[in-house]
Amino acid sequence: MTASIEPTPTAAEARKTARQMRRFDNPWLNPKLFWGAGLLLGIVALGILGRIFWDPDLVFTGSAMLKLPPVGFENLRGQAGTLANPLGTDGGGRDVLALLIIGAPNSLFVGVLASLIGMGLGIFLGFTAGFVGGRTDDVIRVLSDVMITIPPLLILVVFQSAFGDVSLTMMAFLIAGFVWQSPTRLIRAQVLSMRESGYVQMARLSGASTFHIMFREMLPNLVPYLFGSFIANVTTSIVTAVGLEVLGLGPQRIPTLGRTIYEAINAGALIQNLWWWWGIPTALLAVMFIGLLLINLGLDEVSNPRLRKLS
């Protein structure tokens, strides 16, 4: 539409709308993105600040009285919560706050690491399949399609029972084996359509190397998709990790949110009304997922301007 733009009455008002427009123009200044990132950073901050201001040794069994309630509540035995254990203790006398300080960043770490490895694999395989084509493409495509149909939890349960105790990193690697398929397919599809696009042809005409075309011409345009896919993968990885931990698999000696919930269920915390034992870790997981969801929604708006509203 090439038509005139309506003049705004006063200079001050013009400046104000211009400022609003600028805010609108920069898609990364998105409130959903802000809140989502804030929630996740809050969990990271909990881990860092907690280690400084709270005693992480309280995660060991018997470091306090058993089954104490949070401050301001009473347990079934009539004991009141104390400031020494502000969020109460579990059935083994471990401090719930310390468990959260150590456990929540651990859960996040597994998710992020698994997703990073998965994305790395996905980018590599997706680009290879899309760019090389032919037999290579067939192999990668069939492999990722087959992997998508296999329920990851089933395989992981078998793996973990075979391994016995695993480290957090090992766990992340195992989960990464199940989150590379969707980025592979996504990137392959994008690369296939981009390969024929005008600007890639122009780059070829300009004597660009394959490496240049892949990483300087194509990859920057994939960034919004990659971010979105990454966040979705973090969510999937955390869900998988927590799922395994709640089943009693996964790392046996390292506190994670999932493991805490497993122990609470195992010790009959639900019947004994020890809600702080399983409830607080669950709430923290919910916060984590809401944060990831908000980031994903925000990124969606960043990469798809049509979703942005006119303010």
């Binding site: 696009s197 005008g198 042809q201 122009m202 300009s206 004597g207 660009a208 920057p220």
Partner: peptide, 21 residues
């Protein structure tokens, strides 16, 4: 419309081959 990479300013399409060659 397709000949320019949306990620770069348009001078990229002129500058890159000029330097590359």
């Amino acid at each position: 419309y397709a000949c320019f990479n949306p990620f770069y300013r348009v001078n990229h399409a002129l500058k890159f081959p000029y330097e590359r060659f």
